[in-house]
Design a protein around this nucleic acid. Structure first.
Ligand SMILES: [Zn+2]
Ligand SMILES: [Zn+2]
Ligand SMILES: [Zn+2]
Ligand SMILES: [Zn+2]
Lengths: 127, 127
DNA sequence: CAGTTTAATGCAAATGATTATCAATGTCAA
DNA sequence: TTGACATTGATAATCATTTGCATTAAACTG
């Protein structure tokens, strides 16, 4: 554990999740301008390999990280206008997914459910 | 509508869907080696803008296209071992998604549900 | 037809997020 | 101190996709 890694990890956990590597890099830059993005990427990969961060890739070209509490699984509602992300969890959907997979002979190891749309805030300020 | 575009479109529709741009490019190459991949990409973008192809991005680094029949929506089961993709549709999941979105004040315009796992074929030949 | 405009092609170079390379620096135990 | 050994950070490489641009071809015009 080096000072660079510690700063990067701290910065990551200070966020609320769904942070891109560049986000973290820019935040880290303010405290320690000498840290390069290579170290940022490497550290985030380490964190996700260690299981404390999990990698998400939404539609846009970026990889996002969020803290992995391990216990809580959740899916995402994403506002295509302002980028706001809401997390949710629905046990009925989860179990229906398992049913569907079983029906097709799949053993599911992972899944991704993302609902894209317009959040209430953007809908109200729209017109 | 140019001959190049026609060949690319025909080639695309000859496939069963979930085709990468490179797949199409390579198939087109056999019939018309002079066609460049720029034209392939451009034409696929045109097709998806025209609504006859829809763009999917699964976890791997590739953009995939599939014919957009407009009437049928479906989600995907993806084997992480052999890459095989099964399409499915579950009305109960769909309606639960709408319920969840409504609960959070979202108006959903699109969604993505992908189940990753091991298909029955790969499970049987595994050991 | 000849001439002019316009769009489409295809090669090569650019893009942009991520990864690999590698010399320089730090760590630590013998 | 010496020598493994790991880590850093600047830079170059990667790789799917886009873009710039000169060339070709089609579509009008008369
Ligand atoms: Zn919004
Ligand atoms: Zn989340
Ligand atoms: Zn399989
Ligand atoms: Zn499909």
């Amino acid at each position: 554990m080096t000072p660079q890694r510690e700063l990067i990890a701290r910065t990551f956990f200070r966020n609320k999740g769904h942070v891109s590597a560049e986000d973290i890099y820019k935040q880290v830059q303010k405290r320690a301008p000498r840290i390069g993005f290579a170290t940022t990427y490497r550290t985030m990969k380490l964190l996700s390999e260690a299981g404390v961060a999990s990698l998400r890739s939404f539609g846009d070209g970026f990889s996002r990280y969020e803290p992995a509490l391990r216990t809580d699984h959740h899916d995402h509602l994403i506002c295509t206008q302002c980028g706001h992300i809401i997390e949710f969890e629905d046990d009925r959907i989860e179990s229906l997914q398992k049913t569907v997979a079983r029906k097709h002979g799949f053993r599911v190891t992972d899944h991704k459910l993302e609902l894209y749309g317009i959040c209430s805030h953007c809908r109200n300020t729209k017109k």
